[in-house]
């Protein structure tokens, strides 16, 4: 069950533009978000929720449930990520549209065409990880991934490191010809 109410945003305390209540396995979960925090958490267009709920109720329930469960942890994680990014001298927010690097990492999306320039370094890194997926020889690919993993650990980029680690595990699990 999902219904709309007006409350205070659970993240920033401002007046919430949307409040969602759902009952999962008999437990009530509530989430109130203002428009900017809703965007930050991947609910891009709160005004469409009533309609989206009619079309994709399961998707919305799953998304809200995930946000409710992860809210506290995510806030802590984001603060840590931002601090690390600042240390690494990366721009963490697009000055044109205010889209943040952490939102890009969560959703894979960008806020505006200028984000391509602002987050160019991050995008180049992602493109590097993706292109390594298409390396022909598994042995070459493993060596390259291990090198990138080492670099990611050195710069304390644990998110990229986790992706690289999983890819190396996949390669190790693949039977050799």
């Amino acid at each position: 069950m999902l219904r709309l109410q007006v409350k205070k945003c659970h993240i920033c305390g401002k007046r919430a533009s949307i409040s969602l209540t759902q009952i999962i396995n008999g437990q009530i979960s509530e989430l109130a978000l203002c428009e900017s925090c809703a965007k930050e958490k991947g609910i891009f267009d709160p005004q469409t929720l009533t309609f989206a709920e009619k079309f994709f109720p399961e998707d919305i329930k799953a998304k809200v449930d995930k946000i409710v469960r992860e809210l506290a942890g995510m806030q802590q994680g984001e603060a840590t990520d931002s601090a690390k990014d600042e240390q690494r001298d990366l721009l963490v927010r697009c000055p044109v549209c205010q889209f943040s690097l952490s939102t890009h990492r969560k959703t894979g999306r960008l806020g505006c065409p200028s984000c391509y320039t602002v987050f160019a370094r991050e995008l180049a890194q992602e493109a590097g990880v993706m292109s390594s997926d298409t390396t022909d020889s598994p042995a070459d690919e493993r060596t390259e991934l291990e090198r990138e993993l080492q670099q990611a650990i050195e710069r304390e980029d644990y998110e990229t490191a986790a992706v690289l680690r999983d890819r190396i595990r996949q390669l190790n699990d693949t039977p050799h010809p």
Binding site: K39, F44, D45, Q47, V96, C97, F99, R109, L110, G111, C112, P113
Partner: peptide, 14 residues
């Protein structure tokens, strides 16, 4: 296609 100088629709205001 996207116009230059505007936020993408998922990130834009009305």
């Amino acid at each position: 296609r996207n116009l230059d100088g505007f936020p993408f629709p998922g990130w834009s205001t009305a």
